[in-house]
């Protein structure tokens, strides 16, 4: 969106606050306060969680007592929690692998080929994201049960993989639609087969999108409950462990591990967003048009 307002557009008698905000008048100030309070509302719980993870009082209440790191210490010496953490990492990595192996060919098929049922497939694949997670969870539970598969981390992994592949499919599909196809034609003209073209031309061009959507899928898997709830056997993932703990009561230990999870996932997501934006800017449609 181009900026229509220029400096000299401002009506006379208003002055500019050099904060990126617009001229000073009552409407704008009111809206500014409203916007800021909603943003505050969005971050209040996150800030509360982080502050209380460093607070010595075992009950989450005001006033704050002294600062401490002991909850982090308790969390990291809690073996059950650490096992759950390891399980979550395994499930997340496995789910990402499934997402890539299934998601990339699906996106390629949707982008390159016309086939009967294509429109249906496009809608069908994103169903697990559209529908409440619990529907996917119970239907897969019923399915595994009928097939005689006993519940374990493997069923959780398949469930996450299925539910999250849509993220890879939609991102990679969008990327394929936007990038300059002529370089692939050039590669074919120069005699490279489809596999070689994919490996040396297509893949490098969608690499950042793959990394970005994998990071997003991993973070979502790391946090997933509705599907895991129904598909897990004796093993717990980290969210399931937290869920069983917080239903009984509140422990500052959860605040500590929660603060770490939130910090790590915000970092992963920011990396994902900026990697994917960067790729589009480097070799997006604009660059292709300039080349003409």
């Amino acid at each position: 969106m181009t900026q229509v307002h220029r400096k000299d557009d401002r009506p006379e008698g208003t002055f500019h606050i050099p904060l990126g905000f617009a001229s000073w008048d009552v409407n704008r100030v009111t809206l500014g306060i409203a916007g800021a309070s909603v943003l505050g509302f969005l971050y209040l719980p996150i800030v509360v969680l982080m502050i209380f993870s460093f607070n010595s009082n075992p009950i989450t209440r005001l006033p704050l007592t002294e600062w401490t790191l002991k909850w982090y210490d308790t969390a990291f010496s809690n073996e059950v929690l650490l096992i759950a953490l390891a399980n979550s990492v395994i499930v997340g990595a496995g789910a990402v692998a499934i997402c890539l192996v299934i998601g990339v060919p699906t996106a390629l098929a949707l982008d390159r080929y016309e086939f009967p049922g294509k429109a249906v497939l496009r809608r069908f694949v994103i169903l697990p994201l559209t529908l409440p997670g619990l529907i996917t969870g119970v239907s897969m539970l019923a399915f595994f049960n009928m097939m005689g598969v006993s519940l374990s981390l493997a069923t959780v992994l398949i469930g996450h993989g299925t539910a999250l592949t849509a993220i890879v499919v939609t991102n990679v599909f969008a990327r394929l639609q936007r990038y300059d196809r002529r370089i692939e034609e050039a590669s074919a003209d120069l005699g490279a087969g489809p596999l070689r073209t994919f490996w040396y031309v297509t893949l490098p061009n969608i690499r950042s999108t793959l990394i970005g959507s994998s990071l997003i899928a991993f973070t979502l898997s790391f946090d997933e409950i509705p599907v895991t709830f129904f598909l897990t056997g004796r093993d717990n993932t980290l969210p399931m462990y937290i869920w069983s703990t917080v239903r009984r009561g509140i422990t500052p230990e959860i605040n500590a591990i929660g603060s770490i999870i939130i910090a790590v996932s915000i970092c992963l997501l920011l990396v994902a967003v900026f990697i994917m934006r960067g790729e589009d800017r480097r070799s997006g449609p604009r660059r292709a048009r300039q080349a003409k």
């Binding site: 719980p45 509360v48 969680l49 209380f52 969210p239 509140i250 929660g258 939130i262 997501l269 920011l270």
Partner: peptide
Amino acid sequence: IIPLWVSYLLRAYTWKTILGTEGI
């Protein structure tokens, strides 16, 4: 947008600590 992708469970749970009888 970021909070959307950040731990659903933790964000829900924090409201319990905010609104509870002994809460914030």
